[in-house]
Design a protein around this nucleic acid. Structure first.
Lengths: 218, 218
DNA sequence: ATATTTTTTTAGACTAATCTAAACTTTTAT
DNA sequence: ATAAAAGTTTAGATTAGTCTAAAAAAATAT
């Protein structure tokens, strides 16, 4: 069984590697985990000995099939808990991250299956991120940054790329939410900002940076 | 802020001291926590330095007002989570303890207040134990062991004294639950066992030991 | 191509929580 | 009242996770 800390490292490696596809460097891990490279090297050796990652000295790590599976279960728990907090306890989507970071480490298969059932088997969390099923399978929906869209097509907001609390609060304030309908009214050449219409009733300008962080389907 | 381990020691001391009223010995703590006396001595010093317990060498510890308050918050969380597991996730009352032991350490005041509200401010957990309110206040209901009762009075089962999974499973099997109406039909002189009627429809014999572990109001 | 910079690893130390074994108190039993 | 037993504390070691500082390897820049 993995420790709290091992689970956190594995999850970070999973995310940094784009769901396990590419190698991750020691310093990248240290940065996202707010630790020092030396600590990362130590933990990397531990995870490598458990066959959760493949480690080549000085060349970073790649997650193994087994490691990916473990990471997916942590991600699953995190996202189910976030969904619970928002849908059942009326948390707002910018308040759930830190609590879910703790809840994701509770060890009980029964608990997580019952929670999944209680929530009626959700497929995405409050930020639009997919929830792996009990076998670890993810149903990905092809999404593009809103900043890459153009024309008058009907666009639906599917997820946020990086959901910092302040970005999420800003989105709520301007009326953007997961599932919202938007259309692009104008693109400002100068700074890449967009004028968009939300739910056919509200016009707002959003920065290029914000548009890059909103993932949509056309 | 208290560590996971400090919270567990404090909770154990709270329970062993009858909610803080009497002193507790090192070996008692070691026994219930499945550790060695030497480890307990170390932790006792830590908690004492934080003014959560009063420690006199060789004479055990007494919980302080501050320590009692901290312990009550852990107990509150534990019992709210147990209630959640049973009422919302359909756990049975013999399955909840170990998971609640983990959940009780999640740090978030907001979470626990929202959970309390979601559960509609329950006053007792699935085993009939009182749930401290957010200020730590407990509404105790005077209860006596069923083994101390006699006569044909209407008796209501209020709580289990020690709720081991096997005892709880046994109770479910014979139809005893928190809130059940029972009446005493006969007391066997030989071994102290009782013949009782549950909900005016089911007659069973229960051992003296079982009757001592069922707390009721007459 | 070699020197400089950056990144990574190693070595050694620290903290929290645990343990065993030995020393020390207190309790109990004669 | 004192010896034996029981309980408690201290001393010293261990493990997981962390750190700093130094050494080593890789990347980069002239």
């Amino acid at each position: 069984m993995l420790s709290y800390t091992e689970e956190n490292y594995l999850k970070a490696i999973y995310h940094l590697s784009d769901s396990g596809s590419k190698a991750v460097s020691t310093s990248e891990i240290a940065e996202t985990m707010n630790t020092k490279a030396a600590s990362v090297t130590d933990m990397i050796k531990k995870l490598s000995n458990k066959n959760l990652i493949a480690y080549e000295k000085y060349y970073g790590v790649k997650i193994t099939k087994q490691g990916r599976q473990e990471a997916l279960m942590v991600v699953r728990k995190h996202r189910l808990w976030e969904t619970f907090l928002v849908q059942k306890l009326q948390f707002s989507w910018d308040e759930v991250h830190d609590v879910a970071e703790q809840l994701e480490h509770i060890q009980s298969t029964l608990l997580i299956e019952k929670l999944d059932e209680f929530l009626e088997f959700p497929t995405v969390d409050p930020h639009g991120h997919p929830i792996p099923d009990k076998s670890g399978k993810i149903t990905e929906v092809r999404q593009v940054p809103l900043s890459d869209c153009s024309g008058k097509k009907k666009i639906i907001v599917r997820s946020v790329k990086h959901g910092s609390p302040s970005f999420l609060q800003y989105l709520s304030k301007i009326g953007v939410y997961i599932g919202a309908n938007v259309s692009i009214l104008d693109k400002v050449e100068f700074d890449g900002s967009l004028e968009i219409m939300i739910d056919s009733k509200k016009k707002v300008f959003i920065s290029r940076e914000a548009a890059q962080n909103l993932l949509v389907t056309e």
